[in-house]
Amino acid sequence: MTDQNGQTRQAGRTCMRTLGIAAVTAAALTATVTPSVAAPAPAQAPRAAATAVTEAAAADVDYDTWQRDCRAVMDTALPYLKERIADSAPGEKQAIVLDIDNTSLETDFGFSYPQPANRPVLEAAQYAQEHGVALFFVTARPGIIEAPTEWNLAHAGYESSGLRVRGFLDLFKGVAEYKTEQRAEIESRGYTIIANIGNSTTDLSGGHAEKTFKLPDYGGQLS
């Protein structure tokens, strides 16, 4: 379990990342809606600020090392998924639950919108979705950025069967509690969650998944 200080640090990073996503999204939407505006400098300022925040969060983690370590985890996950999907019971509705930040999408290695897919995870997810497995995304991101997050996932190549973001009341719950409740609700709809993939213990604790796969967070450096 993450200790109280660790949860505070994680909450702070989540807040700053959310502000960064919202700022860059707003800038992108403004540029799209009003293409005749001549001076682009104001729209670039939020991007620069967000870049500084997110790059600082990952300052001690090398991108190539992170990708290699993600690949090692998913090289274990993919054979399991292939076997489990092939062994599905007649009529079984299989699902995979995925975290978003530094799991499904690259978040802390430079900032852009749309954020690129984390390739090792995307490859496994695409295999699953091509074989009829539903992909559910459960994130600690707040509902205010639900629409741009949903678009980003589709743009990155994921076919989402459902995106779960935190509503107002969810903000008063621990992340692990909130995510556990979301998986339980997915199960209540008749799905068997064959895998739960995330990079934090709060993504994976609480059960309601046959198997969990933890990507690296390097002691909380990647939220």
Rank of each mutant, 00 (worst) to 15 (best):
P148E: 03
D60F: 10
A140V: 08
M16L: 07
T18V: 01
H208Y: 15
G6M: 10
Q10T: 10
E83W: 04
A176T: 14
S160R: 05
A28Q: 08
L19D: 01
T202W: 06
V53Y: 11
D64S: 12
A45E: 03
T25S: 01
P116S: 09
A23H: 02
A26E: 04
Y191A: 05
N5G: 02
N199V: 03
L78H: 04
P79R: 10
I197N: 08
R84C: 10
G207K: 10
L29R: 15
Y218E: 08
A56Q: 03
V61Y: 06
R13A: 08
A49T: 13
L81Y: 10
P148R: 05
G206K: 15
G190H: 12
T201R: 12
Q10C: 06
G12M: 04
K173R: 15
K179H: 02
G91S: 14
A156S: 10
P46I: 09
A195N: 07
D62H: 10
E177H: 13
D62A: 15
D170E: 13
T54D: 07
A124R: 12
A156H: 03
N118D: 08
A57W: 05
D60R: 13
A52P: 03
S36R: 15
L29Q: 13
A22G: 15
V24F: 04
P35W: 10
V33I: 12
Y80L: 08
M1E: 13
E185C: 00
A11Q: 08
D75P: 01
Y158N: 02
E106Q: 12
T212P: 00
P148Y: 09
P40I: 10
P142G: 01
A124I: 07
E210G: 09
L29F: 07
P142R: 06
V73W: 11
V175R: 07
D69A: 03
D87H: 06
A125S: 11
A49V: 14
S88G: 13
D87I: 00
T8I: 12
L81G: 09
P79K: 03
P90W: 04
A134E: 09
